[in-house]
């Protein structure tokens, strides 16, 4: 009887919903608005010749930190220099997410258009059971297809730097305990942040000068 009650009790899991967001005004989308050294948006590198949306994929990764570092990019990079920060292969999710052509648009308008494009992801499930440890959630936009980037055999394919078009990440969090939405953003003070996107999208968040 006791075992049955225990089994029933343990069988009843509490299901919580955690929503990923780039902010009410899309303020977390700075990583999708980075420019190359020549001043062009990263997103503009793959605009179809006839115009139209950029055929990109949005890769959601949960990066294991092995602890609880600070939230700022410098703190994260310093932490991962000494710890094994790695992507959890079984939790990688890739969603086709065409992004708009924002070539020549001012930054506010470009932000608005990207925000509108990503709104199509509303309701999409990223994980049915979040990892029970401290991680950061990272959303990387790339021109590679999801077929190329799906994890297989316990390993995740490395994303090609030349194909990256955007990136955002969360603060370290324990998703089972978090209250409210998880904010994804990109920590930069300048629009010339292509190098930051590459660091953000790297497998182990290693700083590169």
């Amino acid at each position: 009887m006791g075992v049955l009650v225990l089994a029933l009790l343990t069988g009843c899991n509490e299901v919580r919903q955690v929503r990923l967001t780039f902010g009410e005004e899309g303020e977390g989308l700075d990583g999708f608005l980075c420019r190359e050294d020549d001043g062009a948006y990263l997103l503009s590198r793959a605009v179809p010749s006839g115009g139209g949306p950029v055929p990109s994929s949005l890769v959601i990764d949960f990066v294991r930190l092995g602890g609880l570092p600070g939230c700022r990019s410098g703190q994260l990079i310093q932490w991962c220099a000494d710890h094994d920060c790695s992507v959890l292969p079984e939790h990688r999710v890739c969603l086709p997410a065409p992004l708009p052509d924002i070539t020549g648009l001012p930054r506010p308008e470009a932000r608005q258009q990207v925000r509108e494009a990503l709104r199509s992801l509303a309701g999409a499930t990223v994980a049915s059971e979040a990892p029970d440890e401290f991680i950061i959630v990272r959303a990387t936009a790339t021109l590679q297809t999801c077929d190329e980037l799906q994890a297989s055999g316990g390993a995740v394919p490395t994303m090609t730097e030349e194909e990256l078009v955007g990136c955002a990440y969360s603060c370290p969090a324990l998703l089972d305990a978090i209250e409210g939405d998880v904010y994804l953003g990109f920590d930069t003070l300048t629009e010339q942040c292509a190098q930051g996107v590459r660091v953000c999208a790297s497998g182990n968040l290693r700083w590169r000068p």
């Binding site: 343990t10 899991n13 919903q17 929503r19 990923l20 994980a127 049915s128 979040a130």
Partner: peptide, 18 residues
Amino acid sequence: ATTAALLWKQPVRTEVGF
């Protein structure tokens, strides 16, 4: 049993999505 009941936490499953 009382202690277990007091200390027992219901397992939590967290779904993540946009």
